[in-house]
Design a protein around this nucleic acid. Sequence first.
DNA 1: TTTTTTGAATGGTACGATCATTTAACCCGT
DNA 2: ACGGGTTAAATGATCGTACCATTCAAAAAA
Lengths: 253, 253
Amino acid sequence: MSSDPKFTPVKGTNISQKVADQIESAILNGGIQPGNRLSSERDLQTQFEVGRGAIREALQALKQKGIIEIRKGVKGGAYVKKMEIGNASESLSLLLKQNKVPIDDLVEFRDAVDQTEVILASIRGDRQEKQRLVEMAMKLSELSTRSDDPDVDAIKAIDREMNMLLAQMTKNSVFEWIKNTIQMSIGSYDSLLYESANYRDKTIDNWIKTAKEIAAGEPLKALSRCSYHYVLLQSCIKDQELGKTESNDVKEK
Amino acid sequence: MSSDPKFTPVKGTNISQKVADQIESAILNGGIQPGNRLSSERDLQTQFEVGRGAIREALQALKQKGIIEIRKGVKGGAYVKKMEIGNASESLSLLLKQNKVPIDDLVEFRDAVDQTEVILASIRGDRQEKQRLVEMAMKLSELSTRSDDPDVDAIKAIDREMNMLLAQMTKNSVFEWIKNTIQMSIGSYDSLLYESANYRDKTIDNWIKTAKEIAAGEPLKALSRCSYHYVLLQSCIKDQELGKTESNDVKEK
DNA sequence: TTTTTTGAATGGTACGATCATTTAACCCGT
DNA sequence: ACGGGTTAAATGATCGTACCATTCAAAAAA
């Protein structure tokens, strides 16, 4: 028939979850194309060697996520939905899993959001928040210069905190939401900046200046610092792609 | 005890959907507070007078939406989750249903997105798209001036199309996604501009000028037009809400 | 050939039984 | 009386079977 993905039987508890994971994985990894039909519930029941209820719950979850559609009758069953931009109930992160969104697009979008955020944060952030932002920037610097082998994970964590604080300072919950969503999806790329010592120093230095401009209530100056952050990021990503063939001589632990 | 929400029995097909709707409604309307516990599956089964499978599927859907959490054992059951900004699997529209997002925040966010969009559209839109944008703007004008009683719904439809085209012209799928999501949530407020003849004329006139600036590849001029659109919208909303005077003083150009 | 009927495939619902997990109550030795 | 271990009840998780509702294609009838 169309496809026999050879699902592997599952046992134990959380069965419906495991089943859903296997199916979702098969879909997202391209094993099953949009428009394709999964086996019937009764077939899946035998493939996974579980009860039908578990299958139904798994399908229900996937349907809720918006990645399958369920039809009744002959030729019915679970059909893989074409992921449309426009389904408001589907999350941005799900869109990213589908590889429908080039990472560059996301970086660009984040850039736009960040620019607005630094402006709003400069205007609306209270003194306490501004002070905390500067403190965190200084801590970044401290972590980076204290030893030859800085704790990169700690640095990334603080970077993330600073970004969330920035979003908070806008006093706009939508910015908080979108920032968090982006952060969860883009994190790996964004933290490239902290992997190499060269970019790390520049980035942290820029963070400090950005924080100070925000604290000083200078939106436009902060804005230009923010732009520089993305210049760095773009450059860093470019370097990364160029050095893809040669072995990684980056000493990271 | 906690509460007895008195769910009404359901019959027919799509039962699990109806059950889920009733429960979600009870939660969103505040009938059940975060932290509260729903009855056990077996109790709900009798309350709704349906099979247990239907209840489980409904709860599965709500769990997937992230609005309940399910625990096992004694004292187990479905607990209403506190909706946190930060759950990436929850959708923006769901956030809005919870009234956790002031509409002003959303308008502000949309403003920021739009500003970037007009700039990108000016730069990246091809000639065909730019021409189409101007054509649609002219059609808006035509629809508005043709009679004393313009077809407001048609105008709104074109406004929506123009917005989506604008997003397309950015050549960035994230902007398309976010634009559509916002559009679906903000639509009612945004179309206020077309209800009264006064704002309608100004808005359409501004749309035309915006489209022309974009077509001419003048990002900065288009940007200022875009800002004016939101000045109009803010003013319009303010007129609508006769009561709040000082709190919203966001008029900045 | 066209229309109608029929039947098989499949999702939707219901009911009941059993397993697994969690919590609270109970019991017992010190 | 107290602390720790044991037991029992509540509840979700799973399985299985049966039956209904819907759909579609093939067979039958016109």
